[in-house]
């Protein structure tokens, strides 16, 4: 078949398919993302405030780091018992964007690929989802530092 004809046929078909895709109600998912995301942040703030109450010597930076550690640990646990993916079904980005989502994306492949062995399954695949986050984060932090060095 003529390649150009092929191309225009495919273009038409893609446009047609796009028009056929059912329009989902976006609004409820936005609200859920807002509520769940907000709630996770409020829990974080609560943890950090309580920590500073209990340990008066703790500075705000230190308390925030502890808060992140606790959130990451809890999210990892919730992933393990199979609760976090159910929150994700309705919360969407509300449970992906907070640091808990980062923890979920490290724990979930680790659990999933355990069957292929501790080294080549669990350890190798652990970063199959979150790897790009760490790589891109480190690259951009390095670039930021270099730019500050030059200017």
């Amino acid at each position: 078949m003529n390649k150009e004809k092929h191309f225009s046929r495919n273009e038409q078909y893609n446009v047609y398919v796009e028009s056929k895709i059912p329009k989902t109600k976006d609004f409820p998912t936005l609200i859920w993302a807002f509520l769940v995301g907000g709630l996770i942040c409020v829990i974080g703030q609560g943890i950090s405030d309580i920590l500073m109450l209990i340990v008066p010597t703790m500075g705000i930076e230190e308390a925030n780091t502890w808060m992140l550690i606790i959130l990451i640990f809890v999210a990892s646990f919730l992933t393990g018992i199979g609760v976090y993916d159910r929150i994700g079904v309705f919360a969407g980005a509300g449970s992906i964007v907070p640091i808990t989502g980062f923890s979920n994306s490290i724990t979930s492949p680790a659990i999933e690929f355990k069957k292929e062995g501790i080294i080549f399954g669990l350890c190798v695949k652990m970063f199959s989802v979150a790897g790009p986050v760490i790589v891109s984060g480190l690259v951009i932090s390095f670039v930021t530092g270099i730019i500050y060095l030059l200017f």
Partner: peptide, 16 residues
């Protein structure tokens, strides 16, 4: 805390 945190997540959802 709630509004800003929720808003950032909502931006993510709009992108999705």
């Amino acid at each position: 805390v709630f509004c800003v945190g929720g808003f950032i997540c909502m931006l993510g959802q709009i992108l999705i």
